[in-house]
């Protein structure tokens, strides 16, 4: 390998090497800065435009606006169902997350801490659900929701989100719970503590870091989901934020200032949380892909 490596590179001397490294570093910085601009400029323009009138957006799309002009924001606040959509999203996401973390931890705890026949199979069963694109089963799901009488209700969304969130949660939590030492547990068992008490008082406080990872991995796709509400929800008063945004964008399609305000308002909560917790977000959202 060495020989072939030498023939590819031109065996640089020490001084030329130093300058190559310097040029390379400069190139790297330029590319990274350019990329960061491409990532951030659209978001900045979106926020700027939220404070502009149509004329201002069309004539000077990149200028800094008058941030005290809240006409667009008040319009959204008073004339649309925006707050309602936001509330619905909070409710659906909150209930789903509570159920996912509770049920996911229960299953993971049983699989990781007890030896019983079929535990490996049950883990495999959960993990198999990781990669299945449930969108393609939307027709049977639609009919199932109708038969259960929960079509056009938040319950339809919550049960689907819980089912799709469980595989990742069980996977992450099982891996983590397996690494916990068993000494504490055994000592408590010797003292006659019940299994439920051991789980609740001793083990659960230790699994919080894994819960954060599993939580973030699920909360973002659930908060952002558009597909299932599109199929299950018809009443305007029940729509979640992405879905409400879609109908609101159609309604105000000529008032660009209001459109950009709507986009800005709907991403602001998640951007602020992301900036505050960027490390947890990055770890959480890539944890399925990074071992």
């Amino acid at each position: 390998m060495t020989a072939s490596a030498r023939s590819v590179s031109s065996v640089p001397t020490v001084s030329s090497n130093r300058s190559t490294v310097w040029t390379l570093d400069a190139l790297v910085q330029v590319v990274l800065i350019a990329n960061t601009l491409v990532m951030l400029v659209p978001i900045v323009i979106m926020v700027f435009s939220a404070f502009k009138t149509n004329v201002q957006i069309f004539q000077s799309p990149f200028s800094i606006p008058d941030f005290t002009n809240l006409t667009n924001l008040t319009k959204i606040w008073t004339q649309t169902n925006f707050l309602r959509y936001l509330g619905n999203s909070f409710f659906v996401t909150g209930v789903s997350m509570l159920l996912i973390l509770t049920l996911g931890t229960m299953a993971a705890y049983a699989i990781a801490r007890y030896r019983f026949t079929g535990s490996g199979f049950i883990l495999m069963f959960f993990v198999a659900g990781l990669t299945l694109p449930l969108k393609l089963a939307i027709i049977p799901l639609f009919i199932l929701m109708r038969d259960l009488g929960i079509l056009n209700s938040h319950a339809a969304l919550i049960v689907v989100y819980v089912a799709t969130g469980l595989p990742t949660t069980v996977f992450i939590m099982t891996g983590f719970i397996r690494t916990l030492p068993s000494e504490l547990e055994d000592a408590a068992r010797m003292d006659g503590a019940s299994e439920a008490l051991i789980m609740w008082k001793i083990m659960l406080p230790l699994v919080r870091p894994a819960m954060v990872i599993a939580g973030i991995q699920n909360v973002v796709p659930i908060w952002n989901d558009f597909f299932f509400p599109l199929v299950f929800i018809q009443s305007d008063g029940l729509k979640t934020l992405p879905q409400g945004l879609a109908s609101f964008m159609g309604e105000y399609n000529t008032d660009w200032g209001v459109l950009f305000s709507g986009l800005t308002l709907s991403v602001l909560p998640i951007i602020i949380i992301y900036i505050l917790l960027s490390k947890q977000f990055i770890n959480g959202m890539t944890s399925g892909a990074v071992k």
């Binding site: 049920l103 996911g104 229960m106 299953a107 705890y109 049983a110 699989i111 007890y114 019983f116 049950i122 069963f125 959960f126 659900g129 299945l132 449930l134 393609l136 089963a137 027709i139 049977p140 799901l141 009919i143 199932l144 049960v159 689907v160 819980v162 089912a163 799709t164 469980l166 595989p167 069980v170 299994e195 439920a196």
Partner: peptide, 26 residues
Amino acid sequence: RLWIAALIMPPLVFVCLFIVYPIISA
């Protein structure tokens, strides 16, 4: 055994009813 079943069954029912059953039905 009851305790393990109580931990495993509720999440299993969710996955069976809302993932496995719809995919087989499709």
